[in-house]
């Protein structure tokens, strides 16, 4: 029956399909007037279809959560041999006794059994490039109103910059910069921030995610308030996507141990 119904669909790309006759021209005409956002895609994604995007963000958050719950292990039952590198001499110590405690000193660096020194060129270049990648990610988030971009893309670029650090140095360096607690808080905080903006709209007297209702509070025109609302939810999306990317990468690459990885 589904196949039979699918045969009745308009042809792919048919300009006379119902979706292209009424809805699309309507959005193209009214989106800029109503939301003061030149990029119609962003206006539809974050304003007209705000519910959809909110639950998309929730899906991304639950993907990170599932990865965390499935893979994360606090301590292995059999840690096996542990390796430490003495930083001054580059000598490697191998400890076979699992109950032996190693004091936390700056002279000994815990290392992975399959650790290989990364090339200095790659490390230096990633360290130089990472801040610029992050800056560009923020630009993409903030510039979603005017050009292709927005929360999802900016969040992915932001997360990729941390993954670049993890790839070029090691996972520990990455987890020092983005502690697990921080990204664990950021990921749900992004979704909650999105939903919080929606609830703020309700408190201001509008519908859920009806950013125009915020106009009275901020003392601006209704269109400008919708533009601002889009920016706010994009920030929530970016935070969620960034944190989820790092969570998924860290858990998958280290089998949940967060001690060693690619």
């Amino acid at each position: 029956m589904l196949i039979h119904a699918a045969l009745e669909f308009p042809v792919w790309g048919d300009p006379n399909a119902p979706a292209h006759l009424h809805v699309a021209p309507e959005y193209l005409e009214r989106a800029y007037e109503e939301t003061a956002t030149p990029n119609v895609v962003t206006a539809i994604l974050a304003d007209y279809r705000g519910y959809d995007t909110m639950f998309e963000t929730a899906v991304i958050f639950s993907a990170g959560l599932a990865c965390f719950f499935l893979l994360r292990t606090r301590s292995r039952k059999d840690p096996g041999d542990r390796f430490f590198r003495h930083l001054a001499t580059d000598m490697v110590i191998r400890i076979q006794n699992p109950s032996m405690k190693i004091p936390d000193t700056p002279y000994l660096q815990p290392m992975d059994s399959f650790w290989t020194p990364r090339s200095t060129i790659v490390r230096a270049a990633s360290r130089v490039l990472a801040p610029f990648i992050q800056l560009y990610a923020l630009y993409v988030v903030a510039h979603g109103h005017y050009s292709p971009g927005g929360g999802f893309q900016g969040g992915v670029i932001l997360g990729a910059s941390f993954i670049l650090i993890a790839l070029s140095h090691d996972l520990r360096t990455c987890m020092r910069q983005t502690p697990e607690k921080l990204i664990g808080v950021l990921s749900p905080a992004g979704v909650l921030f999105y939903a919080g903006v929606g609830i703020l709209c309700v408190l201001a007297g509008g519908n859920f995610l009806d950013y125009g209702a915020l106009a009275g509070w901020f003392g601006m025109a209704r269109e400008a308030a919708r533009s601002l609302g889009i920016l706010l939810v994009e920030m929530g999306v970016a935070a969620c996507v960034m944190a989820t990317m790092v969570i998924i990468y860290a858990n998958l690459s280290s089998a949940g141990g967060h001690r060693q990885g690619l």
């Binding site: 090339s119 790659v122 270049a125 130089v128 490039l129 610029f132």
Partner: peptide, 20 residues
């Protein structure tokens, strides 16, 4: 400028991986 730093580094990383 970004490509000028990133592209040779990427090439270096791939060659390095090949040697290893």
């Amino acid at each position: 400028a970004f490509t000028f730093i990133a592209s040779p580094t990427a090439t270096h990383a791939i060659v390095d991986a090949g040697v290893r």
